[in-house]
Design a protein around this nucleic acid. Structure first.
Length: 189
DNA sequence: ACACGGATACTA
DNA sequence: AGTATCCGTGTC
């Protein structure tokens, strides 16, 4: 049985967590994939974090634990998956792209796409492929058999960083991280 | 290039 | 109520 990361893993600074999650396998039900792209958002000093202008996000941080998922609807169209980081520093890690490993048939069905590279190469695509939506908002990634993030580092490689995608504030922070050369990254903007 | 589409937080 | 904004994707 696969061992999943415990809550303590999500108690470091969001930037450290965002980097450390790369190369580990996200398991959700019958589907899974290796995390190849993430972004960090910090409650402190980061105007791009939802806590900056959303009371709901601040309430979420106050009432949830490290390792709980923060899932929200963006542009009225796509759900996005974040993990709550909570320790000495607080924030979120947005999971932006994964390399599909198991449950490919289910992903293809949900995504209505055949090419593996098109199944989970973006934060909205991940939630479609894994069937994630508001139902799971606040659910935990720790202490369960059916979902979690594997402890084992199954992909190693050079970690590159750059500005986060699709935001209007906090553009100066290079808090997007990805495994260089992976064919499963989200499209560059 | 542009349409799609709803939750959230603001003004009044 | 009305308005602005928002961590994207697919198709034009």
């Amino acid at each position: 049985m696969k061992r999943f990361l415990e809550r303590e893993f999500f108690e470091e600074h969001p930037v450290d967590c965002a980097r450390a999650l790369l190369g580990r396998e996200l398991v959700w039900g019958k589907c899974s994939g290796i995390i190849v792209e993430t972004e960090a958002y910090a409650v402190e000093g980061d105007p791009a974090c939802h806590t900056f202008n959303r009371k709901g996000a601040r309430d979420f941080v106050a009432s949830h634990s490290a390792g709980d998922v923060y899932i929200y609807l963006n542009y009225g169209v796509y759900w996005l998956l974040n993990v709550l980081i909570k320790g000495n520093d607080e924030g979120f890690v947005l999971i932006r792209a994964i390399e599909p490993t198991y449950g490919l048939a289910l992903m293809r069905q949900r995504r209505k796409r055949e090419k593996v590279e098109e199944l989970c190469s973006g934060p909205g695509k991940i939630c479609m492929a894994l069937d994630l939506d508001g139902r799971y908002h606040g659910a935990s990634l720790c202490g369960l058999k059916s979902r979690g993030i594997g402890m084992e580092l199954v992909r190693r490689g050079e970690i590159h960083s750059g500005p986060r995608v699709g935001i209007s504030r906090g553009k100066e922070l290079a808090w997007r991280f990805y495994l260089a050369g992976s064919p499963f990254l989200s499209p560059r903007k």
